[in-house]
Design a protein around this nucleic acid. Structure first.
Lengths: 165, 165
DNA sequence: ACCCACATGTAATGGGTTACATGATTTA
DNA sequence: TAAATCATGTAACCCATTACATGTGGGT
C-alpha cells in the first residue's frame, strides 16, 4: 500500500528485468552503478529484499547451488503493480534529486575567484575522465543514458562559467 | 578530522553566508530549496547543528529575543577549513548523485511503449511547470543555477527520446 | 482572550553504513 | 592444500524522518 522508496523501486526493477534473482545479484547491480548513491552494501540490500518479500511484492523460492542454501526471488503481481506505480510516478521523477556539483556551485561564492577557477577546472577534468571510463558496457540503453547525462551536465557547467568569476 | 557529509557541508555553508544564524534559519533555508533532498526537518537540523558545534566547527552564542532562549551559531576557523575541504572536493563534486528521472529512465523498458510515451510527456509538462515556479527570487546566482539546471535536464530528456520508443 | 503561524526543540522509529562472521568455490 | 574470492548474511551504530510537545508573538 505504501509507496516504494527509490531504493525499493530500483531493487524491484532489477529483479523484474532478470525474472528471478538473488539478493546478491541485486547488490552487485547496485554497486556496479557509476553513481555513488547506489552503494549496494549487503547490509542494505539483504534486509530490503526480505522486507519486500514480507510485503508480498516478491516471492522467494529456495534454491541450491552446490551445497549452500540460496534464495531466488521473483516479482509477484502485486510487486509488478507497485513497481509500475513507482516507475511511472511522473511527479517524483520530475524532482531535482541530489547533485553534489549543483550543491557546491550554489555556495561557491564563499571562496576566492582563484579557488573557484581551480575547482571548476578540476571538476571538468574529472568529469571527462569519468565519461571515458565505460559503464554498463553490456547494457546499451543504460550506457547511452549514462553518457548523455554526463555530457548534459558538462554543457550545463560550461554555461554556468559565470560562477567561477 | 572526518570529512563533512553533504548535509553538514551545506549547513556550514548556509551559516557562513549569513555570518551568524540559528538552527531554525538553516532549517528554513533547506526547506525552501526546490530539491526534495533538502527536507529541512527540525529533527535533522537541530541535532546536526549541535553536533557541528560539539566538533568545534561552530561557535554557539546564546541570544535572547523577547523572553525565549535562542542560540546563534557562527563558523569557527576550523569550521571554515572543514567547509572549504568539503566545498572544493572536486572528486565528490563530480559524482552523479541521485536523479529520480535518470533512475526511472534506466528501467523504463519494463513497461509498454504507450506507457513510456505518456510518462515522458507527463514529466515534460511537470518540468515546465516546475521551471515556471520561481525559486530563490532573492538570490540571483542560485536562481540562475537552478533554472539552467532544469533547462539542461529538459534538453537531455529531449535528446533521450529514444527510450520512449 | 483566542487563534494561528512562528520558533525551538525531543522521542521513537526506520533503515543505511560499516564491520564482522562464516561457508563455498576457484585458482595457484 | 592454501589463499583468495565469491556469496550470504547479521549486529552495532548513526542519523534522517515523523510525530509530538511546548513557548512566543501578532492579529482579530
Amino acid at each position: 500500500m505504501d509507496l516504494l522508496t527509490d531504493l525499493e523501486g530500483a531493487a524491484l526493477a532489477e529483479i523484474a528485468s532478470r525474472s528471478k534473482a538473488t539478493s546478491y545479484a541485486i547488490a552487485q547491480a547496485f554497486s556496479h552503478s557509476p553513481s555513488e548513491y547506489w552503494s549496494g552494501s549487503a547490509g542494505a540490500v539483504y534486509p530490503l529484499v526480505k522486507r519486500l518479500a514480507e510485503r508480498g511484492l516478491l516471492e522467494p523460492s529456495p534454491a541450491t547451488t552446490g551445497m549452500r542454501a540460496r534464495i531466488d526471488y521473483r516479482i509477484t503481481p502485486q510487486g509488478r503493480s507497485a513497481l509500475e506505480d513507482w516507475l511511472l510516478d511522473a511527479r517524483r521523477a520530475s524532482g531535482m534529486g541530489f547533485d553534489p556539483l549543483r550543491t557546491r556551485l550554489v555556495h561557491l561564492h564563499l571562496v576566492s575567484p582563484e579557488q573557484r577557477r581551480v575547482f571548476i577546472a578540476e571538476v571538468r577534468a574529472l568529469s571527462e575522465d569519468f565519461a571515458r571510463t565505460p559503464a554498463f558496457e553490456d547494457q546499451p540503453v543504460r550506457a547511452r543514458i549514462h553518457d548523455s547525462w554526463l555530457k548534459a551536465r558538462a554543457t550545463w557547467l560550461a554555461m554556468l562559467d559565470f560562477v567561477a568569476k
